[in-house]
Amino acid sequence: MEIIVPIRQVPDVALNIRVNEGKVVEDGVSFVISSWDETAIEGALQMTEELGGEVTLLGIGPERVSEALRKGLAMGAHKAIHVLYEEGQTDSFGYAKIMAKVMEGRNYDLILTGKQAQDTDAGLTASMLAEFLDLPQVTNIIRFSDLAVDGMTLYRKGDHGTEVIGIKLPAVVTVNDSLNEPRLASMRGIMMAKKKPMETLSPSDLGMGAEELGLQGSMTEVLKFEKPESRKEGERFEGDETETVPMAIQKLVSEAKLAV
């Protein structure tokens, strides 16, 4: 089974993210693989371990993205494609178009990726890619079974329960992080990653011109980033619960208009 895993390198959201004049400050930020994409890499590795075949990572972005790709290779992915791209402003639509170009003429059974990227939290790119490639999509899966080279059963976390979906490949599938616990890279994996093939492409290698890239190739743009109005800590109640709880509830009813 040939699987392509598009991954996105994002600022580590566990750390402090700074904004200056409406832009995210990149200096001093540590970049990581978006956590849902790590889940996708792990899922792809498990599938190829069962059925054979290779996992190919796809990263789009500046030079630093090659680090994310090498980390994915260290986990065990077989090869990587790096579209070297100084992003400027590109939205999900623009990225999906670039990915669709990368897929042209390639042999794959499955495109597996995270349900959303940890920086934009948008969750749009994979489904758009599926539409552009005219492939079926299943998003937000928490399990897979009946693995075969031409299809599998997927369990999607939907609004009203777990949807059980049989799918014929090729397809685009996105993962929820409860699918698995991504493996850590081993020392050998880290060393071998350096020797694994990494194909570096430019947008022009893909036959894409300026009108298809950046803001021109996008449908939306970000005007500015802001720190949300942070919630301020309110009132504290300390002491015996038989006193603090009635006090708090009284305030909830009188000040915040709690009604039950």
Partner: peptide
Amino acid sequence: RPCMATKLVQQCRFTK
């Protein structure tokens, strides 16, 4: 819309 695990919000618009 919120982004970066709600650490930031972004203001967006359609360009086309």
